[in-house]
Design a protein around this nucleic acid. Structure first.
Length: 396
RNA sequence: GGGGGAGUUCCCGAGUGGCCAAAGGGGACCGGCUGUAAACCGGUUGGCUCCGCCUUCGGAGGUUCGAAUCCUCCCUCCCCCA
């Protein structure tokens, strides 16, 4: 049936040829593995490409095995890396692991997903077993892969631990007896190494299915938290909407296919992107939230209006130092806000601010806008702006 | 174990005694324009009680009127030979 066709899986590679059909012919549900290392607290749309395919296998009646790489994260996957990954603390990894699984269920069917943490078997792996594992691979084969070859050429460090990564990932496949493993195209090497490891352990090698890499909001680099070009599945609706709108037009079609597993609609670029943003927000927050996010976008970004909900900040009755107020509300430094005020991009009640201090009489209920999208309403109160204001009773 | 090289502001990367808060690029932010938080063009990009002051160039000392730049020791990393 149509569901079993690779086109439905967004697959780039499906190796070996015919392998999947062969396994499917057994008639029993396949065990489809996807591993995610909890290196950051949130899942973003980049992760959802493979998760979506895993969900598609689920729908087709196969078994989804989601591996939270709480142990492999300690090694650091070298795939696509130009340098070593920073190692997170055990606490952080635990926290991340929890939120990962939770967020993954926005895509997967919770009741039909087998979630495993690879610490379950890797923590018990003893040295003899590790040695057995390392004999399945040669250094020459390892160093042939692009990531390492490039780093060698650039005289950059490669740790022995990193070399171990593909083997350990392969060991995961042994542990869960995977029939198929999913991963981005950058995972091809690891997925194939898994085949060798399985064979060495007397198992039928898994089928490797690779998926396209989703570009981030910049439209060129792969989506990743560390590059700051990501759209998180747990982000607030209006942020998701805005971020989707910020992707280049050229990326919209891919987003439709990879994030939503749908064909892009035949619309003008702007309309297609608006529809995409709405569809993505709907998926993760529901339709009402999507409608609100779109309204917010239209109002604030397209029409340059004021949002419906503006946060209120209490300030003391003394003259208010604008940079300090902005720093309080939005972070950054007072120097940063000074610069923006100089550039005329901070408005008080719609008028560009020319002075740094705001006299008390102009302060009451003042709407302060910093740049296009940041707003705060000031309200007189006891909220003393340290350190320049003295403790006074006048405020009450 | 021996020899060589490197650590600069968010990132990459110039800078080898004062003209350095430190070139250039990337990123980010702001502005213009626009169909968007796209594209394109322009500006900004250490901090502060901000036209002056303070803190930065792996760390700690030292030389000097003055050091990212010179000296000493230490830490980290890379390469080559073994």
């Amino acid at each position: 049936m149509a569901n079993d066709r690779p086109s439905n899986w967004n697959a780039v590679d499906l190796l070996p040829a015919g392998g999947l059909e062969g396994k499917a012919a057994r008639g029993t549900p396949l065990r489809v593995k996807l591993g995610i290392d909890p290196t950051a607290p949130d899942i973003h749309l980049g992760h959802t490409v493979a998760l979506g395919t895993l969900a598609a296998f689920q729908e087709a009646g196969h078994a989804a095995v989601l591996i939270i790489g709480d142990y492999t994260a300690r090694i650091g996957d070298p795939s696509g890396r130009s340098g070593e990954r920073p190692v997170l603390s055990a606490d952080e990894l635990d926290r991340n692991a929890r939120s990962y699984a939770e967020q993954a269920f926005k895509i997967l069917d919770r009741d039909r997903t087998e979630v495993r943490h690879n610490s379950e078997w890797l923590a018990k792996l003893d040295f003899a077993e590790l040695l057995r594992l390392t004999r399945t691979m040669t250094v020459a084969r390892m160093l042939k892969r692009d990531d390492f070859a490039n780093r060698m050429a650039a005289q950059e460090p490669i740790s022995v631990t990193e070399l171990l990564y593909p083997l350990v990932q392969g060991y995961d496949s042994v542990a869960v007896q995977a029939d198929v493993e999913l991963g981005g195209t950058d995972q091809l090497y690891n997925l194939l190494a898994g085949r060798d490891v399985m064979q060495a352990y007397g198992l039928e090698p898994q089928v490797a299915l690779t998926l396209p890499i989703l570009v981030g909001t910049d439209g060129t680099e792969r989506m990743s938290k560390s590059r700051g070009n990501y759209i998180g599945v747990a982000e607030p609706p209006s942020d998701q909407f805005g971020k989707v709108m910020s992707i280049p037009d050229s990326a919209t079609a891919d987003y439709w296919r990879l994030c939503l597993r749908r064909d892009p609609p035949e619309l003008e670029p702007m309309q297609a992107k608006l529809a995409l943003a709405a569809a993505i927000v709907t998926r993760y927050h529901g339709e009402p939230a999507a409608a609100q996010a779109e309204a917010h976008f239209t109002r604030v970004v397209r029409e340059r209006g004021t949002p419906e909900d503006v946060p209120v900040l209490e300030v003391a009755a003394d003259t208010v130092h604008l940079p300090e107020v902005l720093k309080r509300q939005f972070g950054e430094s007072t120097s940063h806000w000074r610069r923006l005020i100089e550039q005329g991009s901070v408005r008080v009640n719609g008028v560009p601010a020319t002075e740094l201090n705001l006299p008390a009489e102009r302060l009451s209920d003042a709407l302060v806008q910093a740049g296009r999208r940041r707003f705060v309403r000031l309200r007189l109160g006891t909220g003393a702006l340290e350190p320049r204001s003295r403790p006074d009773a006048a405020g009450c």
